[in-house]
Design a binder for these strands. Structure first.
Lengths: 133, 133
DNA sequence: CTTGACCTTCCTGTGACTGGAAGCCTTATC
DNA sequence: GATAAGGCTTCCAGTCACAGGAAGGTCAAG
Protein backbone atom coordinates (compact mmCIF):
# COMPACT_ATOMS: atom_id res chain seq x y z
CA UNK A 1 0.00 0.00 0.00
CA UNK A 2 1.41 3.38 -0.99
CA UNK A 3 1.18 6.53 1.04
CA UNK A 4 -1.98 7.88 -0.48
CA UNK A 5 -4.02 4.74 0.08
CA UNK A 6 -2.66 4.48 3.60
CA UNK A 7 -3.72 8.06 4.19
CA UNK A 8 -7.21 7.41 2.89
CA UNK A 9 -7.48 4.29 5.00
CA UNK A 10 -6.38 6.12 8.12
CA UNK A 11 -7.98 9.47 7.41
CA UNK A 12 -4.72 11.39 7.30
CA UNK A 13 -3.08 13.44 4.55
CA UNK A 14 0.11 12.08 3.01
CA UNK A 15 2.05 15.09 4.29
CA UNK A 16 1.12 14.21 7.83
CA UNK A 17 2.17 10.62 7.41
CA UNK A 18 5.58 11.66 6.10
CA UNK A 19 5.89 13.93 9.10
CA UNK A 20 5.00 11.10 11.47
CA UNK A 21 7.71 9.01 9.92
CA UNK A 22 10.17 11.87 10.21
CA UNK A 23 9.55 12.18 13.93
CA UNK A 24 9.74 8.43 14.33
CA UNK A 25 6.14 7.52 15.09
CA UNK A 26 5.99 4.98 12.28
CA UNK A 27 8.54 3.09 10.22
CA UNK A 28 7.02 1.95 6.95
CA UNK A 29 9.04 -0.31 4.69
CA UNK A 30 10.60 0.98 1.49
CA UNK A 31 10.29 -0.55 -1.95
CA UNK A 32 13.11 -0.79 -4.46
CA UNK A 33 11.87 2.43 -6.05
CA UNK A 34 12.12 4.29 -2.78
CA UNK A 35 8.37 4.37 -2.24
CA UNK A 36 7.08 3.81 1.25
CA UNK A 37 5.21 0.56 1.70
CA UNK A 38 2.53 0.48 4.39
CA UNK A 39 1.50 -2.78 6.01
CA UNK A 40 -1.76 -3.30 7.79
CA UNK A 41 0.02 -2.69 11.08
CA UNK A 42 1.25 0.68 9.82
CA UNK A 43 -2.23 1.72 8.79
CA UNK A 44 -3.45 0.52 12.15
CA UNK A 45 -0.93 2.72 13.92
CA UNK A 46 -1.87 5.66 11.75
CA UNK A 47 -5.48 5.26 12.73
CA UNK A 48 -4.45 5.20 16.37
CA UNK A 49 -2.41 8.34 15.90
CA UNK A 50 -5.22 10.11 14.08
CA UNK A 51 -7.63 9.45 16.93
CA UNK A 52 -5.11 10.43 19.59
CA UNK A 53 -4.35 13.66 17.76
CA UNK A 54 -8.08 14.34 17.38
CA UNK A 55 -8.31 14.17 21.17
CA UNK A 56 -5.62 16.82 21.33
CA UNK A 57 -2.71 14.70 22.54
CA UNK A 58 0.65 16.10 21.56
CA UNK A 59 3.00 14.19 19.31
CA UNK A 60 5.10 13.29 22.33
CA UNK A 61 2.04 11.98 24.16
CA UNK A 62 1.16 10.03 21.04
CA UNK A 63 4.61 8.49 21.10
CA UNK A 64 4.10 7.41 24.69
CA UNK A 65 0.58 6.17 24.10
CA UNK A 66 1.63 4.20 21.07
CA UNK A 67 4.43 2.49 22.97
CA UNK A 68 2.03 1.64 25.78
CA UNK A 69 -0.49 0.45 23.22
CA UNK A 70 2.06 -1.99 21.86
CA UNK A 71 3.32 -3.05 25.25
CA UNK A 72 0.90 -5.75 26.29
CA UNK A 73 2.33 -5.72 29.81
CA UNK A 74 1.63 -2.04 30.38
CA UNK A 75 -0.14 -0.83 33.49
CA UNK A 76 -3.34 1.04 32.71
CA UNK A 77 -2.30 3.54 35.37
CA UNK A 78 0.37 4.83 33.00
CA UNK A 79 -2.17 5.46 30.29
CA UNK A 80 -4.56 7.02 32.73
CA UNK A 81 -1.87 9.36 34.01
CA UNK A 82 -1.14 10.67 30.54
CA UNK A 83 -4.80 11.11 29.73
CA UNK A 84 -5.55 12.76 33.06
CA UNK A 85 -2.77 15.25 32.64
CA UNK A 86 -3.96 16.08 29.17
CA UNK A 87 -7.53 16.36 30.38
CA UNK A 88 -6.44 18.83 33.02
CA UNK A 89 -4.72 20.94 30.38
CA UNK A 90 -7.82 20.93 28.23
CA UNK A 91 -10.00 21.95 31.14
CA UNK A 92 -7.60 24.73 31.98
CA UNK A 93 -7.65 25.97 28.41
CA UNK A 94 -11.43 25.86 28.36
CA UNK A 95 -11.55 27.96 31.50
CA UNK A 96 -9.27 30.54 29.93
CA UNK A 97 -11.32 30.69 26.78
CA UNK A 98 -14.57 30.92 28.69
CA UNK A 99 -13.24 33.90 30.59
CA UNK A 100 -12.32 35.58 27.33
CA UNK A 101 -15.69 34.65 25.89
CA UNK A 102 -17.52 36.13 28.84
CA UNK A 103 -15.64 39.41 28.66
CA UNK A 104 -15.93 39.66 24.91
CA UNK A 105 -19.58 38.78 24.67
CA UNK A 106 -20.37 41.37 27.30
CA UNK A 107 -18.41 44.03 25.45
CA UNK A 108 -19.90 43.09 22.09
CA UNK A 109 -23.41 43.24 23.48
CA UNK A 110 -22.70 46.69 24.91
CA UNK A 111 -21.40 48.06 21.63
CA UNK A 112 -23.94 49.84 19.48
CA UNK A 113 -22.18 48.78 16.32
CA UNK A 114 -23.28 51.78 14.31
CA UNK A 115 -21.60 54.68 12.54
CA UNK A 116 -20.77 56.54 15.74
CA UNK A 117 -17.25 56.32 17.17
CA UNK A 118 -18.24 55.59 20.77
CA UNK A 119 -17.27 52.04 21.58
CA UNK A 120 -17.15 50.23 24.92
CA UNK A 121 -14.88 47.59 23.41
CA UNK A 122 -12.14 50.10 22.72
CA UNK A 123 -12.99 51.76 26.00
CA UNK A 124 -12.22 48.55 27.81
CA UNK A 125 -9.00 47.95 25.94
CA UNK A 126 -7.77 51.48 26.60
CA UNK A 127 -5.61 51.82 29.69
CA UNK A 128 -7.17 53.72 32.57
CA UNK A 129 -6.03 57.33 32.91
CA UNK A 130 -3.29 58.00 35.45
CA UNK A 131 -4.65 57.79 38.93
CA UNK A 132 -2.94 60.32 41.20
CA UNK A 133 -2.66 59.14 44.79
CA UNK B 1 11.75 55.69 29.56
CA UNK B 2 13.77 52.63 28.55
CA UNK B 3 12.35 49.32 27.48
CA UNK B 4 12.37 47.65 30.85
CA UNK B 5 10.47 50.41 32.61
CA UNK B 6 8.01 50.57 29.74
CA UNK B 7 7.49 46.84 30.06
CA UNK B 8 6.87 47.07 33.77
CA UNK B 9 4.46 49.95 33.24
CA UNK B 10 2.53 48.04 30.59
CA UNK B 11 2.88 44.58 32.05
CA UNK B 12 4.82 43.14 29.13
CA UNK B 13 8.29 41.58 28.87
CA UNK B 14 10.94 43.53 26.99
CA UNK B 15 11.21 40.74 24.43
CA UNK B 16 7.56 41.13 23.55
CA UNK B 17 7.90 44.88 23.16
CA UNK B 18 10.79 44.44 20.75
CA UNK B 19 8.68 42.00 18.83
CA UNK B 20 5.79 44.47 18.68
CA UNK B 21 8.13 47.06 17.26
CA UNK B 22 9.46 44.57 14.75
CA UNK B 23 5.99 43.88 13.42
CA UNK B 24 5.17 47.57 13.37
CA UNK B 25 2.66 47.87 16.21
CA UNK B 26 4.66 50.58 17.94
CA UNK B 27 7.39 53.00 16.90
CA UNK B 28 9.32 54.17 19.90
CA UNK B 29 11.94 56.89 19.45
CA UNK B 30 15.64 56.13 19.58
CA UNK B 31 18.26 57.88 21.66
CA UNK B 32 21.76 58.76 20.46
CA UNK B 33 23.02 55.52 22.02
CA UNK B 34 20.53 53.45 20.04
CA UNK B 35 18.31 52.76 23.04
CA UNK B 36 14.57 52.83 22.50
CA UNK B 37 12.84 55.74 24.19
CA UNK B 38 9.21 55.18 25.21
CA UNK B 39 6.85 58.11 25.57
CA UNK B 40 3.65 58.02 27.56
CA UNK B 41 1.75 57.39 24.35
CA UNK B 42 3.92 54.35 23.62
CA UNK B 43 3.30 52.91 27.04
CA UNK B 44 -0.38 53.64 26.55
CA UNK B 45 -0.40 51.66 23.32
CA UNK B 46 1.47 48.81 24.94
CA UNK B 47 -1.18 48.62 27.63
CA UNK B 48 -3.85 48.51 24.95
CA UNK B 49 -2.00 45.74 23.14
CA UNK B 50 -1.52 43.75 26.31
CA UNK B 51 -5.23 43.79 27.05
CA UNK B 52 -6.19 42.97 23.47
CA UNK B 53 -3.77 40.05 23.43
CA UNK B 54 -5.11 38.88 26.79
CA UNK B 55 -8.53 38.66 25.14
CA UNK B 56 -6.98 36.47 22.51
CA UNK B 57 -6.98 38.89 19.58
CA UNK B 58 -4.31 38.07 17.01
CA UNK B 59 -1.52 40.49 16.26
CA UNK B 60 -3.26 41.45 13.04
CA UNK B 61 -6.49 42.10 14.89
CA UNK B 62 -4.51 44.17 17.36
CA UNK B 63 -3.13 46.19 14.50
CA UNK B 64 -6.64 46.90 13.25
CA UNK B 65 -8.00 47.62 16.69
CA UNK B 66 -5.15 49.97 17.45
CA UNK B 67 -5.72 51.92 14.25
CA UNK B 68 -9.42 52.16 15.03
CA UNK B 69 -8.59 53.19 18.56
CA UNK B 70 -6.55 56.08 17.25
CA UNK B 71 -9.04 57.03 14.58
CA UNK B 72 -11.49 59.25 16.39
CA UNK B 73 -13.87 59.15 13.41
CA UNK B 74 -14.17 55.35 13.42
CA UNK B 75 -17.52 53.63 13.32
CA UNK B 76 -18.09 51.38 16.31
CA UNK B 77 -19.53 48.83 13.89
CA UNK B 78 -16.02 48.15 12.62
CA UNK B 79 -14.78 47.39 16.09
CA UNK B 80 -17.81 45.30 16.84
CA UNK B 81 -17.31 43.28 13.66
CA UNK B 82 -13.74 42.39 14.63
CA UNK B 83 -14.73 41.49 18.16
CA UNK B 84 -17.73 39.46 17.02
CA UNK B 85 -15.68 37.47 14.59
CA UNK B 86 -13.11 36.77 17.27
CA UNK B 87 -15.81 35.84 19.73
CA UNK B 88 -17.20 33.34 17.25
CA UNK B 89 -13.78 31.76 16.87
CA UNK B 90 -13.39 31.49 20.62
CA UNK B 91 -16.80 29.89 20.98
CA UNK B 92 -15.94 27.45 18.24
CA UNK B 93 -12.69 26.54 19.93
CA UNK B 94 -14.46 26.07 23.23
CA UNK B 95 -16.91 23.70 21.59
CA UNK B 96 -14.06 21.66 20.15
CA UNK B 97 -12.29 21.48 23.48
CA UNK B 98 -15.45 20.57 25.32
CA UNK B 99 -16.00 17.67 22.98
CA UNK B 100 -12.47 16.46 23.66
CA UNK B 101 -12.98 16.99 27.36
CA UNK B 102 -16.20 14.99 27.35
CA UNK B 103 -14.65 12.06 25.54
CA UNK B 104 -11.50 12.11 27.62
CA UNK B 105 -13.16 12.46 30.97
CA UNK B 106 -15.42 9.57 30.14
CA UNK B 107 -12.49 7.40 29.14
CA UNK B 108 -10.45 8.41 32.15
CA UNK B 109 -13.30 7.62 34.50
CA UNK B 110 -13.68 4.21 32.88
CA UNK B 111 -10.00 3.34 33.24
CA UNK B 112 -9.09 1.42 36.34
CA UNK B 113 -5.65 2.99 36.49
CA UNK B 114 -4.02 0.06 38.16
CA UNK B 115 -1.24 -2.39 37.31
CA UNK B 116 -3.36 -4.39 34.87
CA UNK B 117 -2.95 -3.79 31.14
CA UNK B 118 -6.66 -3.52 30.28
CA UNK B 119 -7.40 0.05 29.34
CA UNK B 120 -10.51 1.54 27.75
CA UNK B 121 -8.51 4.61 26.75
CA UNK B 122 -6.23 2.60 24.50
CA UNK B 123 -9.23 0.56 23.46
CA UNK B 124 -10.93 3.68 22.21
CA UNK B 125 -7.84 4.92 20.39
CA UNK B 126 -7.33 1.58 18.70
CA UNK B 127 -8.93 1.30 15.28
CA UNK B 128 -11.91 -1.04 15.03
CA UNK B 129 -11.16 -4.44 13.52
CA UNK B 130 -11.97 -4.90 9.86
CA UNK B 131 -15.67 -5.13 9.32
CA UNK B 132 -16.46 -7.46 6.46
CA UNK B 133 -19.57 -6.52 4.53
C1' DC C 1 6.40 7.91 -26.32
C1' DT C 2 3.85 10.91 -23.91
C1' DT C 3 0.68 12.21 -20.44
C1' DG C 4 -0.89 12.39 -15.93
C1' DA C 5 -0.92 10.77 -11.47
C1' DC C 6 1.78 9.25 -8.28
C1' DC C 7 6.00 9.28 -5.43
C1' DT C 8 10.50 11.31 -3.39
C1' DT C 9 13.34 14.95 -0.80
C1' DC C 10 14.21 19.53 0.63
C1' DC C 11 13.05 24.23 1.88
C1' DT C 12 10.02 27.71 3.58
C1' DG C 13 6.29 29.56 6.35
C1' DT C 14 2.93 29.50 10.05
C1' DG C 15 1.97 32.63 15.35
C1' DA C 16 3.70 35.00 18.83
C1' DC C 17 6.81 34.93 21.01
C1' DT C 18 11.18 32.89 24.17
C1' DG C 19 16.01 31.87 25.04
C1' DG C 20 20.55 32.72 24.26
C1' DA C 21 24.91 34.53 22.24
C1' DA C 22 27.91 38.38 21.27
C1' DG C 23 28.80 42.81 22.03
C1' DC C 24 28.00 47.99 23.23
C1' DC C 25 26.47 51.49 26.99
C1' DT C 26 25.82 53.24 31.66
C1' DT C 27 26.27 53.58 36.40
C1' DA C 28 28.42 52.63 40.64
C1' DT C 29 32.23 51.40 43.22
C1' DC C 30 37.03 51.06 44.28
C1' DG D 1 41.18 55.06 35.60
C1' DA D 2 39.75 50.26 36.05
C1' DT D 3 36.25 47.15 36.69
C1' DA D 4 32.01 44.80 37.47
C1' DA D 5 27.05 44.63 37.25
C1' DG D 6 23.23 45.43 34.87
C1' DG D 7 20.77 47.20 30.86
C1' DC D 8 20.64 47.80 26.14
C1' DT D 9 21.33 46.32 21.13
C1' DT D 10 20.99 42.92 17.13
C1' DC D 11 20.67 38.44 15.27
C1' DC D 12 19.82 33.49 15.22
C1' DA D 13 17.54 29.32 16.69
C1' DG D 14 13.69 26.93 18.57
C1' DT D 15 8.81 26.21 19.61
C1' DC D 16 4.38 22.86 17.48
C1' DA D 17 2.42 20.08 13.96
C1' DC D 18 2.11 20.36 10.11
C1' DA D 19 1.02 22.75 4.89
C1' DG D 20 2.58 24.49 0.49
C1' DG D 21 5.47 24.23 -3.16
C1' DA D 22 9.61 23.28 -6.10
C1' DA D 23 12.45 19.94 -8.55
C1' DG D 24 12.73 15.63 -10.06
C1' DG D 25 12.13 10.28 -10.20
C1' DT D 26 8.43 6.37 -11.19
C1' DC D 27 4.60 4.01 -13.01
C1' DA D 28 0.43 2.62 -15.66
C1' DA D 29 -2.45 3.72 -19.56
C1' DG D 30 -3.14 4.85 -24.19
Amino acid sequence: MNIKQAGEAAGLPAKTIRYYEEVGLIRPLRGANGYRHFRESDVHKLGFLGRARALGFTIEDCRLLLSLYEDKTRASSEVKAIASRHLAQISHKIAELRAMEATLSHLVSCCAGDARPDCPILGDLAPPPNQPA
